[in-house]
Amino acid sequence: MWNSFLTDSHVSVLAEIITYKGGDGDEIHAYFAHPNDDNVRGGIVLLHHNPGWDEFYQEFAERLARHGYNVIAPDLYCRLGHGTSDDATAKMRVLGGIPDEQVVKDSRAALEFLNALPTANGKTVVMGTCSGGRGALLVASLVPEFNGVIDLWGGNVVTPEDQLTPDRPVAIIDYTERLNMPLLGLFGNDDKGPSPEQVNIHEDKLKELGKDYEFFRYDGAGHGFFYYHTERYRWEQAMDAWEKVFAFLTKILAN
């Protein structure tokens, strides 16, 4: 929970950009944040949003690490070259996006990285915001070794057939049958992607297939309501949602 640390505790976090062996054995960058002690703990693969592997995601990873988890946030645009995060994102757009298959491979490799740590307790969650939320659902559906998934307003989960592409050949909702781990979903009711109607369609599918999920929807919030660096930030909704995130992580990643 937020502000639950004890004032006589010695919270210490290490956070750095590393390289790890991603999908297909490629060395790619990741932001790796973890408590600076030898205690055994759960891990989180954090998938960044469409605007890139940016400073928000570094701080996001650090916050999760401060709450006691090993966190790896792969740079999913790493193979495109380097520069500022907005330059890398522009290049991603020019080159047509990142294939779903690559996201799955890099995430599976990140899971293996976490599980090989001496402090790993063998439990991991995959999570992300925006396209990272979509990516988290994709990965959770295809990599059953994860123990839970958090989708923060991932768009394009419900995708019309005419919008599928060779790089994104399957609508994420059509993987629901294969999703066999608890799912936490957090959404803003003013969001247009996913719209409340799309969230309902997704929820209906989860219900129909008897999946383990919890969805929370916030009035007065749109897309990206955690983003304190934008006008979209909604502090009340974000703080409530953070509590739900921490509660889910506590439940799934407990030793």
């Binding site: 330059d87 522009a90 290049k91 757009r93 020019v94 934008t230």
Partner: peptide, 17 residues
Amino acid sequence: EEHAMLLDFVNYELGTD
């Protein structure tokens, strides 16, 4: 704003920037 028309003129032979 959440979205914008994004116009980019690039030459990636010279680098991402």
